Amino acid sequence: MSHKSPKPSQLANVALLACLYASSAWAQSETKSEVSATGKSVELVYESSFQNYQRYSASTIQSWKLTNDTVKDIGGWREYAKEVTQDQDAKPSVSVHSHGGHQ
């Protein structure tokens, strides 16, 4: 059985893998945790996500005809659109972006 010598590209791959392995070993540095000189402790407060949970309650089911007539009586979709724009006018935007003279 004869043993062939490796090709230069195979040697380069082996050398590259060896370098990557060595660099990853050096990247793992030992961390030392030091206690701060002030010695202040932090108080953790637990707040449950479910503390203010409100269970779903289905609204009463009405006839679709009655519901459509009610919407028509109050002004239809335009009335809902007015409510949305009035809510936006009442609540000013928190962040105001200035773009110089651009409008």
Rank of each mutant, 00 (worst) to 15 (best):
A12G: 07
N13I: 09
N13K: 15
N13P: 02
N13D: 04
N13G: 14
N13E: 06
N13S: 12
V14E: 02
A15V: 13
A15F: 01
L16H: 10
L16F: 07
L16A: 14
L17R: 15
L17C: 06
L17N: 13
L17Y: 04
A18M: 04
A18K: 08
C19G: 13
C19F: 06
L20R: 13
Y21W: 05
Y21Q: 15
Y21K: 14
A22F: 08
S23M: 12
S23D: 06
S23A: 14
S24I: 08
S24L: 10
S24H: 09
S24P: 01
S24M: 10
A25G: 10
A25Q: 13
A25P: 00
W26E: 14
W26F: 11
W26H: 15
W26Q: 15
A27P: 02
S29R: 09
E30H: 07
E30K: 08
T31A: 03
K32C: 03
S33Y: 00
S33W: 01
S33T: 12
E34M: 08
E34C: 04
S36M: 01
S36K: 08
S36T: 12
S36W: 01
S36G: 11
S36V: 05
A37S: 10
A37P: 12
T38C: 01
G39P: 08
K40Y: 00
K40L: 03
K40E: 07
S41A: 01
S41C: 04
S41N: 07
S41W: 00
S41F: 00
V42L: 02
E43N: 14
L44C: 04
L44E: 02
V45M: 00
V45E: 11
V45S: 13
Y46W: 05
Y46C: 08
E47H: 11
S48M: 03
S48E: 03
S48A: 13
S49W: 01
S49E: 10
S49T: 14
F50C: 12
F50W: 09
F50V: 14
Q51T: 15
Q51H: 11
N52L: 11
N52T: 08
Y53T: 15
Y53R: 15
Y53Q: 15
Y53I: 12
Y53L: 11
Y53A: 15
Q54W: 05
Q54L: 09
Y56E: 04
Y56S: 13
Y56A: 13
A58D: 05
A58P: 02
A58G: 10
S59N: 05
T60N: 03
I61T: 12
I61H: 01
I61K: 05
I61P: 06
I61M: 04
Q62V: 06
Q62W: 00
W64M: 00
W64I: 06
K65V: 01
K65P: 01
L66Q: 12
L66R: 10
T67A: 09
T67R: 14
T67K: 11
N68Q: 11
D69C: 05
D69N: 14
T70Q: 06
T70V: 07
T70F: 06
T70H: 06
V71F: 05
V71I: 13
K72W: 03
D73E: 11
D73G: 13
I74Q: 06
G75F: 03
G75R: 06
G75Q: 03
